[in-house]
Design a protein around this nucleic acid. Sequence first.
DNA 1: CTAAACATACCAGATGGTCGGTTTGTTTTG
DNA 2: CAAAACAAACCGACCATCTGGTATGTTTAG
Lengths: 188, 188
Amino acid sequence: MTEAHERKKQPEIVRRALLDCAAQISQEQGLPAVTLQAVADAAHVTKGGLLHHFPNKQALVQAVFHDLLKQLDTQIDLLLEDDPESYGRFTRAYIRAFANAESEGACNWNALPLSSHTDPEMKAMWSEWYASRLARHAESDAGPELGIARYAADGLWLAGLLEYSGVEATGHDALIEQLISLTRKKQT
Amino acid sequence: MTEAHERKKQPEIVRRALLDCAAQISQEQGLPAVTLQAVADAAHVTKGGLLHHFPNKQALVQAVFHDLLKQLDTQIDLLLEDDPESYGRFTRAYIRAFANAESEGACNWNALPLSSHTDPEMKAMWSEWYASRLARHAESDAGPELGIARYAADGLWLAGLLEYSGVEATGHDALIEQLISLTRKKQT
DNA sequence: CTAAACATACCAGATGGTCGGTTTGTTTTG
DNA sequence: CAAAACAAACCGACCATCTGGTATGTTTAG
């Protein structure tokens, strides 16, 4: 993405560029479009250079996935801090994180988790992340109502990906807020 | 799937076999595994034979998608009949249809809609189906609460795909029923 | 000078797709 | 009713392209 042509050799920058470009391609054209050539071209590197940073394609894709997961993680941590209420705190952060993913073009952990159902390792990564995160907030976010709210957030996010680009942003924010409100009422 | 070796020439049967095999491969190994060769082999036809029925791969995949969509459609119609209550009728059928998709191995409109976010035509097909269906049940299923319930069903279905195969069926049915109950309380 | 960071060249395999031909079923004709 | 004429269904070989990956060379940094 960032044109780092001036600096002579900055391996970490190149690595970041590869990660970002791969993520962007995956998001815009789907995972099958993420070819070594395409990623290398987008990052202004040759295929050989790319394969120097990542031994093979699987490693590349998994690194991207791991990276996006880390971004999601930190974003959620950020949202957690601004929430005074205990009950359902993680669920609210989860909902907001995925809501932002749709609106902001910058932070996009989008298409990858979708197409990742092919690779069992990536499925495992996601499952583990979700499970550990859930265990961490077991006391505040265990109820089934909260689980439903999170599932709804997933569904809403999915719908945003599948719908025709002319998505009516109207009502979307309202829906998000309604989801949030679901996390506030105590279970009966 | 069905060994229709005896009958001499039955183009419609072959076409069905191609559709079914493609759907199964897509579900079991993901869309990238749906290659002309693989589908042809699975249906006991040569690649040439396959390309006689479908001019190119895109046509094949879209035909599969259209077929699965029709299956979903009829299943929902079936569920609609058994529901005496008007309010939220379609939403309940929608939820149950996706719940069955997970449990039953037979009816599986699974992996395709997932990976379909690449092809804009398939995105459009899904959007149109959803929109038209929603318009048809506008009077009974318009409320935002019902929309959330459907989104949650989507999320739950997605989770079933992404989670490790050892999904705990425990609690799943209970969650479904809780979603159903969400469609019964009137809006405030 | 040594090792890391890249580029270049190349390869074996797979993929989507084309093309000419062969088999099979249906219609026409005598 | 039989044979010829026609069209649909299907096969098998072939091809250009692209894929991930390797092996080897060249440049740069410490």
